[in-house]
Design a protein around this nucleic acid. Structure first.
Length: 740
DNA sequence: TTTCCTGAATTTTTT
DNA sequence: ATTCAGGAAA
């Protein structure tokens, strides 16, 4: 049911203005998602718009998932035919249908960052580029930037005339793009670029989608780049029903080509655009808002906004500085524990935000020790783990033998005794014949100079052929199992008997689950559909509602989310704002972007905000000493709680307190996951002092001490890698490796 | 020829 | 800390 009475005047305005372009300037927490979802519901229920004609676009999968859920709840029947997706996945869907119109094969594959780097390495090798002077990553950044500006190689080349650096980059761009085309692959930026190209060169396709998506809604509009803007304006050209929501203060993707002009020029491109401002904040307390306002006010050249709230002042902001990052993490773990006990909140009400993914490690360790269920969002992509990429490369090869990168990745995985010399011979043969790498492999008998190596290649080619034959009558999950079985991949891992192999096996299991889940959920599940889904999703599981865990993530991925209790960790100059931005040529702008990021972080908090810093922390193995972040100093001191000054010495909870808290928690937290938290004191332990044991996280170690703690045994172990740890036996789940 | 081992280099943020 | 390139052993 769509109850407009729940909206304020401005929100209602935005919902009811259904025809024509609409720009919603929405401050943080002003209920923009609510406006978007209500607007969709209103379009369908009141205006009789067919759900099929609505496209809602977001930036991240997480945001898309959230929006999807809310739309489903509000709209109910028919909501599944609304497209709610990210720019990239919308483009993939379009391209899979029509990219043959601009000379690609519809069975293209998508290259991730790692693949891009591999391609660029090849290109640099071929062009004899000195990669000391022109770093691959640097070149890729330039290319990405060009693509975000919708500049194809030819045009880029013209622009580069006269500039030695840019001419070199242009050369790389041309070659890089050729290589992608040869492999029938697109990189992330191509997805947008090729879609726009498709629209511009095939008016009939464009018109089809214009008619299809008569109503387009865009979230986080301030982060759109030039191609995305082109994409949107082309789509909306015919009916002009484009509704965009944005906040210039939350623009944090300039590094990815976000173009703030898109918001400022909206009214120019769409002349009779209506603009609505949402300024009432429903999320945070006044203290949190004041802190956010004060920080962001240090930026020049922004649209002044007056955010206000009906919520009371709330708790003061907590700022603390610790000696080390270690203590910082310990404090946060302890504080979450404390709040859980005092207020009986849910774990999912807490979030720890940091600047870089690398910072998650410390928290992971401490949370594991304190038995706080947590989930790390982002970081090392599930799908970029080695074993997963291997399996996916097999799938890609089976689906589309044109992807040389995938074929080359797995030709010798697991070991088939095929080395680089053989590969080079095959590659030159393929190049000479103008065929793909896999086709050359199929032709192995005619490849000159292969000799015995051909015999090693044969089983691989057979395997792929056999799988292709089975394709039509086997599930994706079955296919993966077949591959794992035939190649002995799982067998080899099991034989390794290391922690690492164990983890890899676990990941493979997760992939199998994912495949099974895909087949259940998809209308017409097939291999390509699976690969497509997997290519654009970083994390294996989106957040489920019942998933009661503390979230750990970067400030970037926190955008669009909200939590009652937010911890911003690592608030140090050099970390946040990052060293890169401070040292940059255009430091002023770079730091302003960081400050917006800080603004985003602060405004995630609903009830309480804690900012922490460490005097010293390990960065890349070395100790780094940092000052308190300038952003903390920009928070007015009267908002910061007394008794918790920034330079307060770290209060380290004693071991006994921690142990006590843990035991208590274990008793209380049964509702979360009885399996995990049930404390059953074993009659005796399978290991004794002096035994070698292994722990899931810490690896192998020696038992130093076992103390009977009443409810449970407390075990002290000296781990090889991480040193002495104390833990409860039932939590640690140590396995005996060998006896004394 | 392939594999294994050692020393060097390297990291913001996301799709 | 972890990955990557280059050289020596098998």
């Amino acid at each position: 049911m769509n109850d407009l009475e729940l909206l304020n005047e401005q929100q209602k305005d935005a919902v009811l203005h259904t025809e024509g372009p609409l720009l919603i300037l929405a401050g943080a927490g002003s209920g923009k998602t609510r406006v978007l979802t209500y607007r969709i519901a209103h379009l369908i229920e009141t205006c009789g718009v067919n759900p099929w004609n609505i496209l809602a676009i977001t930036f991240t999968n997480k945001a898309a998932g959230e929006m999807r859920e809310r739309v489903d709840r509000l709209v109910g029947f028919g909501s599944e035919s609304i497209w709610v997706s990210t720019f990239h996945s919308a483009c993939v869907r379009i391209l899979h249908r029509y990219i043959d119109r601009i000379g690609y094969d519809n069975r293209f594959t998508i290259y991730d960052t790692e693949d891009q780097k591999t391609v660029m390495k090849n290109v640099c090798g071929r062009l004899q580029t000195d990669t000391k002077l022109f770093k691959e990553q640097k070149l890729l950044n330039i290319i990405s930037h060009a693509k975000n500006e919708y500049k194809p190689p030819e045009e880029f080349k013209l622009d580069a005339k006269g500039d030695f650096w840019m001419e070199k980059a242009a050369e790389a761009y041309v070659e890089y793009q050729k290589e992608l085309e040869k492999n029938n692959a697109l990189d992330f930026d191509d997805l947008l670029m090729k879609t726009v190209e498709l629209f511009q060169s095939c008016p009939d396709v464009l018109e089809y989608y214009q008619d299809r998506f008569r109503y387009v809604l865009v979230d986080e509009y301030q982060d759109t780049n030039t191609v995305q803007f082109k994409f949107l304006s082309l789509l909306a050209e015919k009916y002009k029903n484009l509704c965009v929501v944005g906040d210039d203060d939350q623009s944090i993707y300039k590094f990815r080509g976000a173009n703030i002009e898109n918001i400022l020029n909206f009214e120019k491109v769409f002349p009779n655009a209506r603009t609505v401002k949402l300024e009432q904040n429903y999320r945070s307390t006044q203290n949190i808002l004041d802190a956010a306002n004060s920080v962001i006010s240090h930026n020049k050249g922004r649209k002044e906004k007056v955010l206000w709230t009906d919520n009371g002042p709330g708790k003061p902001i907590v700022c603390r500085q610790f000696q080390t990052g270690y203590e910082e993490a310990e404090y946060i773990a302890g504080d979450i524990r404390k709040k859980m006990e005092e207020k009986a909140e849910h774990y999912k009400d807490f979030a720890v935000l940091y600047r870089t993914n690398a910072q998650s490690r410390l928290f992971e360790e401490k949370f594991l020790m304190a038995n706080i269920p947590y989930k790390i969002v982002g970081g090392v992509n599930f799908y970029s783990r080695k074993e997963i990429k291997d399996v996916l490369a097999y799938l890609k090869t089976i689906d589309n033998g044109k992807d040389d990168l995938a074929v080359r990745r797995i030709i010798n995985v697991p070991r088939r005794g095929i080395g680089s010399v053989t590969l080079n011979k095959v590659q030159s043969y393929a190049d000479a014949q103008g065929m793909s790498f896999f086709e050359a492999l199929e032709d192995m008998d005619t490849v000159p100079g292969l000799g015995k190596a051909a015999l090693k290649i044969q089983p691989f080619v057979h395997l792929i052929h056999a799988c292709r034959l089975k394709l039509s009558d086997i599930s994706v999950k079955g296919l993966i199992e077949e591959i794992l079985d035939q190649t002995g991949y799982v067998r080899d891992l099991k034989a390794e008997e290391t922690e690492e192999a164990e983890a890899r096996l676990g990941n493979i299991d997760e992939l199998l689950n994912k495949a099974a889940a895909y087949e259940e959920q998809a209308a017409e599940p097939d291999l390509r559909g699976f690969l497509e889904e997997v290519a654009l999703v970083a994390d294996i599981d989106s957040l489920e509602d019942g998933d009661n865990r503390v979230l750990l993530m970067t400030l970037h991925s926190a955008k669009g989310l909200e939590f009652p209790y937010v911890y911003m960790a690592g608030m140090e100059d050099g970390i946040f704002p990052s060293y890169m931005s401070i040292a940059a040529e255009n430091a002023v702008q770079e730091i302003e972007e960081e400050r917006r990021l800080c603004y985003v972080g602060i405004t995630r908090a609903m009830k309480e905000l804690t900012m922490t810093a460490a005097r010293a922390r390990k960065v890349r193995g070395e100790n780094q000493y940092n000052n308190i972040s300038r952003f903390i100093l920009e928070v007015p001191s009267d908002l910061v709680g007394r008794g918790t000054p920034c330079n307060a010495p770290a209060v380290r909870p004693s071991q006994k307190d921690m142990a006590h808290a843990r035991a208590k928690e274990a008793f209380k937290a049964k509702t979360f996951d009885p399996q995990q938290f049930k404390v059953v004191k074993a009659d005796s332990l399978e290991y004794k002092v002096g035994d070698r044991v292994s722990h899931v996280k810490f690896g192998k170690g020696t038992v130093l001490e076992i103390a009977d703690g009443g409810r449970d045994y407390e075990v002290k172990v000296d781990f090889e890698k991480v040193g002495v740890k104390r833990m409860f036996a039932s939590f640690a789940r140590l396995k005996k490796v060998e006896s004394l």
